[in-house]
Amino acid sequence: MDYYVLSQIVNGLIFGFIYALIALGLTVVFSIMRVVNFSHGEFYMLGGYALYALTAGVVTVFGIPLSIPTILGLPLAMVGVAVFGMLVERGLLRPVYTARMDRPEEYAIILTFGLSLFLQYGALTAVGPYEMTPGAFWEGSKHVIGDLYLAGDRLFAAGISAVLIGATLYFIYGTWTGRALMATAQNRVGSTIVGINTVRMNITAMVLAGLLAGGAGALLAPVFLVYPDVGQIPVIKAFVIIVLGGMGSIPGAVVAALILGLVESLGSVYVSVAYRDVFAFLVLIGVLLFRPHGLFGQQERRA
């Protein structure tokens, strides 16, 4: 295998990690709350703007322009979006779930769809239509392999994505709260009766989604810019990934994201770059033909 092919594979995998980070939060919220969060792309957007606001020196607090180092801006942006996620749960979604109405999921979906539009137009009005680039995490482009050079920022984003994905998997599979999340996803009543506060699990899911999507948005802003509808394409990819991986399956989402990154990278040079964004759907259709529940999906077993 020559360096060229290897370079394409490496670039594809790097992108796969980034996709996984975006998809994880979506799949967690879906599996816990049964809500397809259409505003997930705007969580991603907010992460980018938050990093920009904190680091670029354009926002002033008490007369002092904010320009903290990007590396500190990242966790702050993540926390900021997580808090926003919490407010969305409290202010928009919880009232729907406690109002004892038929099919709360459908109302919730419409709400998140509205929120998505609101945030996009809000950003348009508040900061304008222009693309912005926050400062770099890792300046310059770095030699990766063969002829492949990539931006330090892109490598940093992939590396931190891998770390955050690892941390999320540990959190889900290695901690009590994570196990309670899984239990809640699989049976809400069954979780309540052992003493799990499922409302708190909803909050946890939204906070986790905020951390991950906000983190992805902030990490990628120096590479892919930030503008009002920046989250639209990533979130569509994330939808494809979670269906491909099996709705609600966390390892499925990670594997599907890596596959998608690879397929897009190789497909766009060996088939045609014009159909780059179509490959996602082709893979999806192909997989669903043979595995209707996705790669890691399990058939719902409900009494």
């Binding site: 009590w176 196990r179 309670a180 899984m182 239990a183 699989q186 049976n187 009543v189 069954g190 979780s191 009766i193 052992v194 003493g195 799990i196 399990q298 077993r301 409900r302 009494a303």
Partner: peptide, 19 residues
């Protein structure tokens, strides 16, 4: 209604009883 966590093992199910 059934309240087990279908995709977890029997032991993981029982273990969660100690929440």
């Amino acid at each position: 209604e059934r309240t087990v966590y279908p995709h977890l093992t029997v032991e993981q199910n029982i273990h969660l009883g100690s929440w």
